[in-house]
Each structure stands twice: as structure tokens, then as C-alpha cells.
Design a protein around this nucleic acid. Structure first.
Ligand code: ZN
Ligand code: ZN
Ligand code: ZN
Ligand code: ZN
Lengths: 162, 162
DNA sequence: GCCTGTGTTGTTATAACATTACATTACCTA
DNA sequence: TAGGTAATGTAATGTTATAACAACACAGGC
């Protein structure tokens, strides 16, 4: 049974379940939505789910090559476009890198906590901060379409390590 | 005399004064800090100050070439590193582009409002939102080093235009 | 004035990230 | 099983950014 989703991947957690439930949820969602989780797309998602770390597109591509699942950049970028577009993964703009989504609820808007030391990425809900952002924007007459909040720093593990 | 700093560049404003006071403040600050605002650096800052738009490094480089002030990427990236490092400009991670800072106070931490239509970029103080971000991060045991908030949408002018 | 260290710029090359374009294949459905 | 749509394979190219080293400029001490 799927354990309650604890979004804090910095905590010690049963990571095997992150991986298997991530794939399972993705398969179920795709089936329900009539989306095709093809071998390339599934493998890219698996690769991202293997860690909670941000991976560059070319890192992922190298892994795909090992599995003979495509060796040219468009292959991985198309898979990532699908995964990001359907909420299975996120792009981290600061790093030009990608990470699996930890809580692929229908519509969630996360902020990202990126460890500078280990590149692990945690998500936490942007609301209610997002509303404050909108308010600040509205003060300048700006109509918000999308918000991006990326925080860098040190995860609990890496803090303890030193 | 320097007009009171209205950070909302979306408002109609005396833009000539943005440009001249931006350069003047930069020169004064560099003098005070023993920094060298060399011709290349000054020209890059001027180019950024000419508009409030985000410019790619290679766009800036093209302008530098016209002035015979360096034609290779490292020239512009080094100048941008200097300007960003000293608070005269900012990098917009979402766009991989750069914009002049509108309020080069000693230490200010802005969030950015980026118009998808015209690429103009406004800054507005991140506080008190930043504190909320820190609190959300602390809930996960994460030690924040730097926050980045970039909002995309439509500026007042571009809203009116349609 | 000249040496010398430090910081800046010039230049070449290359790394890293991403897309266009078009041919081919797989899948669905009528 | 034919035809349409979605996905993939592949080559080429575009865009953003850095490494490495040579040359030059400026400042302070001799
Ligand atoms: Zn997510
Ligand atoms: Zn860490
Ligand atoms: Zn202005
Ligand atoms: Zn605009």
C-alpha cells in the first residue's frame, strides 16, 4: 500500500518506495489520461527517481545510451518535455537540470530546495507564499502567469556531515 | 538631482535619468570601493541600462563588437561577472539573460517580474516574502544560502496593448 | 625611470545545454 | 489492412558558458 506521501525527501525514508510508487503512479495516471508512458519516457523517469538529485539532460542521455534507448539529445529532451509537461518531473532553472517530482498530485506548485553540496532537491508547497508574490506583483500592475522559487543551501544530511 | 528611486520601471518614467544615474552611481561606488569600472565593464552596464530588458550575453557581445570593445565570449562574461558580483546587474536564470539593477543599494534582495511579451524586468523587494521562504525551508531542516524568485507574466503596458 | 606583482583583456578552443528538421517506425482505429 | 497520428532515430546546428594561456596595463616600491 502506498505510504502517506511525506514530501520531505531530506528525511531518512524508504527510498525503494519512492521509486516504485513513483513509477506506479505515473503508469496509472498515464493510463487514466490516455498518455503513453513509452520505454524511453519510463526509463528517463526511472533514472530521475533513482535519486532525488538534479540531473542534467546529458547525464540522463548517457544513462539511456547504456540501455540502448536513444543516443541523441532530442530523445532525452522530448522525454523530459513529456515528463515535465505532465507533472512527473520538474526543471530546475538555476541548474539547467531536472528532477523527478515527489508528489505528482494533479496540480501542485512547489518551491524547490536545492542542496549545493549533494544536488538533492526537495519540494515544498509554494502556497501561501505564492499569494504574497502575486500581491507584490499586483502592486506594480504586473499580471502573474507563473512563479518560480528556487532556494539553494544545505540539506540536513550535508549540514550534519561537517 | 537624483529623483527618488521609484523601483517600478513599468511606470512611465524619466528613463534618461535611469541611465545617467545608474552610471553615475556605479562610478561613485567603484571609486569608493576601489573597484575598476573599465571601458568594457562600463559599456556593458550602459548597454543594459539602455532598456529595462533582459539581454542575452551574446546580444551584449554583438553590441560590444560594434564599439570594438572585445569580440569573444569571455570578454562579456567577465564583465557580467563583475557587474553581477558587485550588484550592478542581475542574472535572470529562467532566461539565461542579464538586466541592469534598478536600485543598486548596498545589499538588496529582489524578486524579478519578467514580462513574457517585451522582456522588460522589474525588481521589487523580496522581503518579507524571503522570510516566509526561509521558514518553509527550515521546516524541512534546510539551511538557506540564497533565494531566487522569478515571476513571469505580463507588464502593465503589454496588458493594455491588447 | 624600472622592476614586479596583480588585475584586466585578447584569443583560441572547447564544454555544456538545447533545438530544428526531416526520415522512419509504432500504434490506433476505421 | 490502409491511413492518420504520435513517437522515435538521426544529423546538423544553434545557444549559452568556461578553460587555458598569452599579452597588456596599472600601481607601488626600488
Ligand atoms: Zn513536484
Ligand atoms: Zn545535501
Ligand atoms: Zn527606466
Ligand atoms: Zn511588457
Amino acid at each position: 500500500m502506498p505510504q502517506p506521501p511525506d514530501p520531505n525527501i531530506f528525511q531518512k525514508h524508504n527510498h525503494r518506495s519512492c521509486r516504485s510508487s513513483g513509477m506506479k503512479e505515473a503508469r496509472a495516471f498515464c493510463k487514466a489520461q490516455g498518455l503513453r508512458l513509452t520505454p524511453v519516457r519510463a526509463r528517463v523517469l526511472e533514472i530521475l527517481l533513482e535519486s532525488h538529485k538534479a540531473l542534467g539532460a546529458y547525464d540522463i542521455l548517457a544513462r539511456l545510451k547504456e540501455d540502448n534507448l536513444g543516443s541523441q539529445p532530442p530523445v532525452v529532451y522530448r522525454a523530459l518535455e513529456f515528463l515535465v509537461g505532465n507533472g512527473f518531473a520538474h526543471k530546475l532553472e538555476r541548474l539547467n537540470a531536472f528532477a523527478a517530482c515527489c508528489q505528482p498530485d494533479a496540480a501542485h506548485e512547489p518551491m524547490f530546495l536545492i542542496c549545493q553540496n549533494c544536488r538533492k532537491v526537495a519540494e515544498t508547497p509554494l502556497q501561501p507564499i505564492g499569494r504574497e508574490i502575486d500581491r507584490a506583483a499586483a502592486d506594480l500592475g504586473f499580471a502573474v502567469v507563473s512563479r518560480m522559487v528556487e532556494v539553494t543551501g544545505t540539506c540536513p544530511t550535508c549540514q550534519a556531515g561537517t
